[in-house]
């Protein structure tokens, strides 16, 4: 999928700063808009699956809300201009560092590409995570081994559980074993459970 990010913010500095950060870290197409009306005019040409980073005062306008309502392929992250401690994944703060911003955008894209519930094919990355979960590694260790953030590991694990319908670590281990994701010739399986 060609990733698309549209930024709606009054400040040219913010627009271009975010675009710069995204270009450097994520392979995606970025377009900049000053306000929702500018965006809405061309919205028909923008595809139907994209991520919008939008300044919070525009996000709360009724025109934006009704625009977004029936567009299932569109995900939103709001941008908050004030100096606040970063918390949720669906919010970018101007004082977030680049890593945090990239992470939030990546998580949003992951959620967007997530298959419908019940589809049980795992992505390659999810299988990597699953293998390490099955071998008993903790989230932090998995993150280090795969060079991703702990947060991303948790998000992968959530998707794995959702796709497979298996919650417990031992249950996931059984799944990994019966699908030959891990080599069990030299280990006693019941020790893994």
């Amino acid at each position: 999928m060609n990733k698309k990010v549209y930024i709606l913010h009054r400040s040219a500095v913010v627009q271009n700063g975010l675009a710069e950060i995204l270009h450097h870290n994520i392979n995606c197409e970025v377009k900049l808009f000053e306000s929702f009306p500018d965006f809405e005019i061309v919205s028909e040409t923008l595809g139907d699956k994209y991520l919008v980073l939008v300044e919070d005062n525009q996000l709360n306008s009724s025109s934006f809300k009704s625009f977004i309502r029936n567009r299932n392929g569109v995900s939103v992250i709001k941008i908050i201009n004030s100096f606040t401690q970063s918390t949720g994944n669906d919010t970018i703060y101007l004082y977030d560092n680049a890593g945090e911003i990239v992470n939030k955008v990546n998580v949003a894209f992951e959620q967007m590409t997530k298959p419908e519930k019940g589809e049980d094919t795992l992505s390659t990355r999810e299988i990597d995570v699953l293998k390490l979960v099955a071998l008993g590694y903790a989230n932090k260790e998995i993150a280090d081994k795969l060079h991703i953030s702990t947060h991303t590991v948790i998000s992968h694990r959530k998707n794995i559980t959702e796709k497979l319908g298996i919650k417990s670590v031992s249950g996931l281990t059984v799944y990994a074993v019966i699908n030959n994701f891990i080599d069990t010739s030299n280990i006693n399986i019941s020790d893994l459970l």
Partner: peptide, 11 residues
């Protein structure tokens, strides 16, 4: 629940 899932879906 996992046991059910494994048997019904994956074995």
């Amino acid at each position: 629940n996992d046991l059910k899932n494994l048997i019904i879906k994956y074995i």
